[in-house]
Simulated scan of single mutants.
Amino acid sequence: MSALVRRISTFLRSPRGQQLVERGRREMAKPENQARLRQLATRLSSRRR
């Protein structure tokens, strides 16, 4: 498992990984995407009960 985590962290430090992280931050700054994420979290939490 640690090999997988190491590969992911290496990727996130790479230029392409940094681009994806920045794109994710820009997308999550949009209110409509925040609402979608809240709805998904609500659905997932209600399934656990």
Rank of each mutant, 00 (worst) to 15 (best):
M1A: 03
M1N: 01
M1C: 02
M1R: 01
S2P: 01
A3F: 05
A3Q: 09
A3K: 05
L4N: 02
L4Y: 05
L4M: 10
L4V: 06
L4D: 03
V5W: 02
V5L: 08
V5Q: 05
V5H: 02
V5R: 07
V5E: 05
R6C: 06
R6S: 12
R6T: 10
R7C: 07
R7K: 13
I8Q: 06
I8K: 07
I8E: 06
I8W: 04
I8Y: 01
S9V: 08
S9T: 09
S9F: 04
S9P: 00
S9A: 13
S9Y: 01
T10K: 11
T10S: 11
T10N: 14
T10V: 13
T10L: 12
F11W: 10
F11S: 12
F11P: 07
F11G: 05
F11R: 12
F11D: 15
L12H: 07
L12E: 14
L12N: 14
L12A: 15
L12P: 03
R13S: 15
R13I: 08
R13M: 14
S14K: 15
S14Q: 15
S14E: 14
S14W: 05
P15L: 14
R16L: 15
R16K: 15
R16N: 08
Q18W: 03
Q18A: 14
Q18S: 11
Q19D: 13
Q19K: 15
L20A: 10
L20S: 00
V21F: 10
V21M: 13
E22M: 03
E22G: 12
E22Y: 11
E22K: 14
E22L: 10
R23D: 05
R23G: 04
R23S: 07
R23E: 09
G24S: 10
G24T: 08
R25F: 10
R25Q: 12
R26G: 08
R26S: 10
R26D: 09
R26W: 12
E27H: 12
E27S: 12
E27F: 09
E27V: 07
M28H: 07
A29C: 07
K30N: 11
K30M: 13
P31G: 03
E32S: 12
E32Y: 03
N33M: 06
Q34E: 09
Q34L: 11
Q34A: 08
Q34H: 02
Q34Y: 00
A35P: 00
A35N: 04
A35W: 02
R36W: 03
R36M: 11
L37Y: 09
L37P: 00
L37C: 06
R38S: 07
R38W: 02
R38K: 14
R38T: 03
R38M: 10
R38G: 02
Q39P: 00
Q39G: 09
L40K: 14
L40E: 12
A41F: 03
A41I: 10
A41N: 06
A41M: 08
A41L: 10
T42D: 08
R43C: 01
L44T: 02
L44P: 00
L44R: 07
S45T: 06
S45V: 00
S45W: 01
S46Q: 14
S46M: 13
R47W: 04
R49A: 11
R49C: 08
